[in-house]
């Protein structure tokens, strides 16, 4: 016990010290000059004539990036330019992390030895609540006992709204991806939005529905291919006698960053879908209809009528 209290004491003192140092550093940081003082930059002038920039008074990398943005890249959104042009290599590394997370999650959650690889444990509410067993008052039902389409669906309102929202989510996600160059957004944000469809399907149709709608191994292969596209676009720069990630098709509104952006968009969408499916599969449970096979909704409707 003695060591436990001394550990707590150490923790409290350390946290106070970190906070104190942090706050003193914060005051110092708040009083120092901003990292990019854009007040002197004429942004309207830059937009009208991109070549009229002057980097002599630059006070940071951001200043140079904003000044050169319209001249050297085809995007209006400077953040997008930073992500895919100036720091494209970081973005590459960032999407490697996603692939690593997917491969790692697949490795950690694989269950080839102990159970069948793709099997759902179905649960249902017992006919009489008194002999409740299992995890949450449900009883387990083998896969074989079920005829098709007997898994429990959610209420019709949820299903209808999901059917309505699903295409909207995908279209909205890809709208964000494609318009990343001129409005807030880009590959990552849009991809994540589009990947939300997996959760929508799960909400309405359960794991059985997710399994019918998506093919995780295909998603994994295609997202890896899209990531390879990114790398090859980068390598094309080298074969064009320039450096890695060189922006070699810059003309008007087109640049390599667009291909990279779309590749990242697809990669993130497929990757997050894949990740979600793997984690949902790990739970591996789904609820089925009660014994008598009648629909929940009709029962409730009857109950209301009575």
């Amino acid at each position: 016990m003695n060591s436990k209290s001394s550990k707590n004491l150490i923790l409290i003192i350390s946290l106070i010290a970190i906070l104190a140092c942090g706050v003193s550093a914060a005051i110092k940081m708040a009083n120092s000059a901003p990292t990019y003082d854009g007040t002197g930059t004429d942004v309207v002038g830059l937009y009208d004539d991109p070549s009229t920039y002057d980097n002599s008074g630059a006070d940071g990398v951001a200043s140079v990036m904003v000044n050169e943005n319209n001249d050297k890249t085809a995007a209006d959104n400077v953040v997008y330019s930073v992500v895919f042009n100036y720091r494209g290599y970081d973005t590459l590394g960032e999407s490697f992390i996603l692939i690593g997370a997917i491969a790692g999650t697949m490795a950690i959650l694989r269950r080839d030895k102990r159970r069948g690889s793709r099997k759902i444990v179905y649960y249902r509410k017992p006919a009489d609540n008194s002999k409740a067993s299992g995890a949450v008052g449900m009883e387990a039902v083998g896969d074989n006992d079920l005829s098709t389409n007997q898994y429990k669906r959610k209420p019709v309102i949820v299903r209808c709204s999901v059917s309505f929202l699903m295409p909207l989510a995908i279209v909205y996600g890809w709208y964000i991806v494609i318009h990343g160059a001129m409005s807030p957004g880009g590959g990552f944000q849009g991809g994540v939005l589009a990947a939300g469809t997996v959760l929508l399907v799960y909400l309405a149709y359960g794991l059985t529905g997710v399994r019918k709608a998506f093919n995780p191994s295909l998603l994994h292969v295609t997202e890896t291919l899209s990531e390879m596209t990114y790398v090859f676009v980068g390598l094309l720069g080298i074969f064009g006698a320039m450096n890695f990630c060189f922006n070699f098709v810059l003309s008007g509104s087109e640049e390599t960053a667009m291909i990279m952006n779309d590749a990242v968009g697809y990669h993130v969408m497929a990757g997050i879908c894949c990740l979600l499916i793997i984690m949902l599969e790990a739970l591996g449970t789904d609820e089925v209809l009660p014994d008598n096979g009648s629909d929940n909704i009709t029962e409730k409707r009857k109950a209301v009528a009575q």
Binding site: D42, V43, V78, V79
Partner: peptide
């Protein structure tokens, strides 16, 4: 926001750091 959207930018507006 550091985006060159012409309808919203004026002579006096300036950007925050995009990095």
């Amino acid at each position: 926001a550091p985006i060159f959207t012409m309808s919203e930018l004026t002579q006096a507006s300036f950007f925050v750091d995009p990095v």
